[in-house]
Amino acid sequence: MRKINIILILIMLLVLGVFNSSAISKSKYQSEWQKLIKTNKELIQKEKKNKIKNIKAHFRLGVAYANLGKIDLSKKEFDLLDKLDDKKEDKELKKIVKYYEKQLNKNPNDHLILNYLGFAYYADHNYKSSLKIFKKIVNKDPKNIWSHNYLATVYGKLEKYDKAKKVLEKSMEIKDDDYTHFLLGAVYYKQGSIFKALYHVGKSGSVGTKLLD
């Protein structure tokens, strides 16, 4: 009887461990991002009927998807900026950056504005400013692996590969994720560790194909 109780306790601990590891890998602002997805999708559909393309709404939608780890959907929204001609893209990005810089001055600790500005700086190739923002985002949402992954991506753009690797290793401690493996593979490749790069890219499954598509 005692052996059965011990086995049951072990099973319960394992089950709880599985559920906890899944839960802590998510943003603590999960519900807010989900609401924003719904709101911006509705706005885009409404304005689409009037033949209006709301770039800012698509951008916000992309950021929300990114925070929930829906990378393919996020990429689809951000790709709309790339489809604009260079002058219009630059103009739209500058408008987005200036808007959220003003918003952040009013609300310096707002996690949504921090995310919008961090991604806007990144899209505008202002990686140093993006880095400062994503450091704050990770501090505010430390259990969200996606915040860590995007911080590491910015480090990579700045060629600070050791720091990128440390951030990704921290992300892997929170949750073993295909996307994180892919980023680790990219970092190891840049550092010349080909076998480690191949290992992590291999562990990433179809993620690489989606990102490079």
Score class of each variant (00 low, 15 high):
3 K>P: 00
6 I>F: 14
8 L>Q: 10
10 L>A: 15
11 I>W: 08
15 V>K: 11
17 G>H: 08
23 A>I: 10
24 I>P: 00
26 K>Q: 13
26 K>I: 04
27 S>D: 03
28 K>Y: 02
29 Y>P: 02
29 Y>L: 08
32 E>C: 00
35 K>T: 12
40 N>G: 06
41 K>Y: 04
42 E>A: 15
43 L>A: 15
44 I>N: 06
48 K>Q: 13
48 K>M: 04
49 K>F: 06
50 N>I: 02
50 N>A: 13
51 K>W: 01
59 F>E: 04
61 L>E: 07
61 L>P: 05
62 G>Y: 06
63 V>S: 08
63 V>G: 07
64 A>E: 09
67 N>I: 04
68 L>Y: 06
69 G>A: 09
70 K>C: 03
71 I>H: 08
71 I>P: 03
74 S>D: 07
75 K>A: 13
77 E>A: 09
78 F>Y: 13
80 L>C: 00
81 L>A: 10
81 L>G: 06
81 L>H: 03
86 D>G: 06
86 D>Q: 13
87 K>E: 15
89 E>L: 12
93 L>P: 01
93 L>M: 12
93 L>A: 05
95 K>F: 13
96 I>F: 08
97 V>N: 10
98 K>R: 13
100 Y>Q: 05
101 E>F: 03
102 K>G: 09
103 Q>G: 10
103 Q>L: 07
104 L>A: 08
105 N>D: 15
105 N>Y: 04
105 N>E: 15
108 P>H: 04
110 D>I: 10
112 L>V: 15
113 I>H: 04
114 L>H: 06
119 F>A: 11
121 Y>V: 09
124 D>E: 11
125 H>G: 00
131 L>W: 03
131 L>Q: 05
131 L>N: 01
140 K>L: 14
144 N>D: 14
150 Y>T: 10
151 L>M: 07
152 A>I: 03
152 A>C: 05
154 V>C: 07
155 Y>F: 14
163 K>Y: 11
164 A>M: 06
167 V>F: 03
171 S>P: 02
171 S>N: 04
173 E>A: 06
174 I>E: 05
175 K>I: 04
175 K>D: 02
177 D>V: 01
178 D>W: 00
178 D>E: 12
179 Y>T: 10
180 T>H: 02
184 L>H: 01
186 A>K: 12
186 A>W: 05
186 A>T: 10
191 Q>A: 02
191 Q>V: 00
192 G>K: 01
205 G>I: 07
207 V>Q: 06
209 T>D: 14
211 L>F: 11
212 L>H: 09
213 D>S: 11
213 D>L: 10
